[in-house]
């Protein structure tokens, strides 16, 4: 019950932030230079053609009228019509979110599990060779440009060894996969399409690996730091002095206490992963949300820019909210 009240209160606090995002994107995308209409018309279009096109998308209306229309659309779940493609922005977005979420969720999950295991391992060997190796690795991970790492993996995994498919899509089109959620591996599993399962899994390996290496480093550093803090705490020293078996110490004391700080960091990492996927999707021609949003941004496709910015902000703040709930659940000292 208390949790529900807490979530409700936090959701209410989100409203002004999201409203700010809506207003700001709406204004900025229109005020700053760039014209979406000119980019869809050919070079020979006359001023009259441009005016007609503008009227078709309601861009001839005064700014406040456009804003009210947009807001009204938002409340009815209508994100508008894409100027580039003429399709419904909501529908296009739904198709693009699946592939990107598949990538991010798999990578962040793997990275979190790896970070917990490796971080605790490293903290227990503090200031010895193994620990220094892990720290140096984390520094490398923090410093590596992911898009370049993606290219290096393509160079090795595809161009040299030939173990993985070419970076030009998410699944082999010959497998006739029926798209349901957009996340190809999930779709293949649901429809029981054997070849598609193999093909989409093979396509996932390199991009997921790229993303894992990119997001692992900050998680690893944080797990290591909080594990060290626990190891040096009086509570842990007392438990160890009582002669508790190693297993109980590790599971009951070290692991749980270490995990307390992880949720908020995992949320932060989810955000950086969203940013990185724009680059990684580009490298692997993933045709996901990132590429769609980038294209919209480059062509000043107002409805697409507005929708994608809003969704990213919403997802990001929502993940932080989930992180706070998980934190409260892990740490009984937190009062919410």
């Amino acid at each position: 019950m208390r949790i529900l009240r807490f979530v409700g209160r936090r959701l209410l606090q989100l409203i002004p932030v999201l409203l700010g995002v809506v207003v700001l994107t709406f204004l900025l995308v229109r005020v700053l230079p760039g014209d979406p209409i000119r980019s869809i018309l050919g070079p020979n279009a006359t001023e009259a053609d441009a005016d007609a096109a503008r009227a078709r998308f309601g861009l001839d209306q005064p700014m406040w009228k456009q804003f009210l229309d947009y807001l009204q659309g938002l409340f009815t779940g209508d994100f508008g019509t894409s100027i580039q493609s003429g399709g419904s922005v909501g529908g296009e977005m739904a198709l693009r979110l699946g592939p990107t979420l598949e990538l991010v969720v798999i990578a962040v999950t793997i990275a979190v599990l790896l970070a917990i295991w490796l971080g605790i391992w490293s903290a227990r060997r503090a200031d010895r060779v193994g620990d220094h190796t892990v720290r140096i690795f984390a520094l490398f991970g923090n410093s590596i440009p992911e898009f370049w790492l993606g290219l290096v993996l393509i160079l090795v995994g595809y161009a040299t060894l030939g173990w993985f498919p070419a970076p030009s899509g998410r699944v082999d089109p010959d497998t006739n996969l029926t798209p349901l959620t957009g996340a190809d591996l999930v779709d293949a599993l649901i429809t029981g399409n054997g070849p598609a399962i193999a093909s989409s899994a093979a396509h996932l390996v390199l991009p997921v690996l790229t993303l894992v290496i990119g997001v692992l480093a900050p998680l690893l550093r944080s797990v290591r730091a909080s594990a060290l803090e626990v190891l040096r705490s009086e509570a842990y020293a007392a438990a160890a002095a009582h002669g508790l078996p190693e297993k109980t110490l590790l599971r009951g004391y070290l692991r749980r206490a270490t995990l307390v700080r992880l949720p908020s960091l995992a949320a932060l990492v989810f955000g950086t992963a969203l940013g990185s996927t724009v680059l990684i999707e580009y490298v692997y021609s993933w045709q996901g949300f990132g590429q769609w949003a980038l294209r919209g941004l480059l062509y000043r496709d107002y409805p697409v820019v507005q929708a994608s910015v809003l969704i990213i902000a919403f997802a990001y703040v929502l993940v932080f909210l989930i992180a706070d709930v998980v934190h409260a659940w892990l740490d009984p000292r937190v009062k919410i």
Binding site: L18, G20, V21, L24, V278, V309, I312
Partner: peptide, 19 residues
Amino acid sequence: DIFQAFPTFILALAVSALL
């Protein structure tokens, strides 16, 4: 708060695409 409602790289991407 509004600035930090976005992953930083996404924000940089949006700002530089506009600027």
